[in-house]
Simulated assay, not measured.
Amino acid sequence: MSESRQAHAAKKTRRNEGKAGDGAQRHDAIYRAISDAIIEHRLQPGARLREDALSDVFGVSRTGIRKILQRLALEHLVTLTPRRGASVSRPTAEEARDVFAARQLVECGLMEQVVQRATAADVARLRDDARRERQALKAGKQSEAIKLSAAFHVRLAELAGNATLSEFVGRLCSRSSLILAVYGNTGHLGCESHDHDELIRHLESGNGERARAFMQRHLKAIEASLSIAEAPEETPDLKRIFDGALG
């Protein structure tokens, strides 16, 4: 058998083994890969997510892909439509307003607890997150900066010590990424690069009220940066987007 035919046979064997051996750990890895692609805007709102194409890309069964898409749909990252299948969710203007209203209530409300509970090590980690976000922006790595910005807000919520609320903030930040993709301006993250540094200074000062007021202004500024505009539907190249995603 030629080398090229051997390579093709080995690839086919790995794919078949993967489809026969769908497992929770692999499904979680695929879920994270798709979720990251959505949050980082590599998959745009409205993009179709064909089960057969994803099954081929990741080497798992269509049943497994269907379960993963259903999980993403529960988090409002994917929309499932009868007879049409799955697509990346495209938030409406009303949904965008609702998401930012929820973020105002939850994230601002957590600031007092964050100030009380944050240690010097926590603040140092936040500062490192903000630094990496700035570096990504400076290097023109928009997708990475988007993900880091969302992670900064999630880490803040985690410091408040309420696992349920921090999980909720994580979902809101993921949906905010979709909103920015639909209504945001090109090259704009929503979060100004210096805002997170200023928020960290308020945390270090121990002033919960100032931290709360600043978070309120910060979230309002993100919402104010949005402009409503329809995005055309697209069919993405799933193989290119997820090439090497699972190693």
Rank of each mutant, 00 (worst) to 15 (best):
E3K: 11
S4K: 08
A9Y: 04
K11D: 06
K11Y: 05
K12F: 00
T13I: 06
R14Q: 14
N16R: 08
G21W: 01
G21Q: 07
Y31M: 01
R32W: 02
A33S: 13
S35T: 00
E40P: 05
Q44D: 14
R50M: 10
R50Q: 12
D52R: 15
D52Q: 13
G59I: 11
R62V: 10
R62F: 00
T63S: 02
T63H: 05
T63N: 04
R66A: 07
I68Y: 04
L69N: 07
L74R: 15
H76K: 15
L77G: 14
L80A: 12
V88E: 11
S89A: 14
P91L: 02
A96I: 05
V99K: 06
F100Y: 05
A101F: 13
A102F: 04
A102V: 10
L105G: 09
E107A: 10
A118F: 12
A118S: 15
A124I: 02
R127E: 13
D128N: 10
D129S: 09
A130F: 03
R131S: 12
R134C: 10
Q135K: 13
Q135I: 04
L137S: 10
A139I: 00
Q142F: 01
E144C: 00
A157C: 00
E158D: 00
L159I: 12
A160P: 03
N162T: 04
E167L: 06
F168E: 12
V169M: 02
L172D: 14
S177R: 13
L178D: 07
L180N: 07
V182R: 15
N185S: 08
G187T: 11
C191Q: 10
H196Q: 08
E198F: 01
E198N: 08
I200G: 04
L203T: 09
E204G: 10
S205F: 07
S205C: 15
S205I: 06
R217Y: 02
R217W: 03
R217N: 08
K220L: 04
E223V: 01
A224H: 09
S225G: 11
A231P: 01
P232K: 10
E233I: 12
R240N: 10
F242R: 05
G244Y: 08
G247E: 09
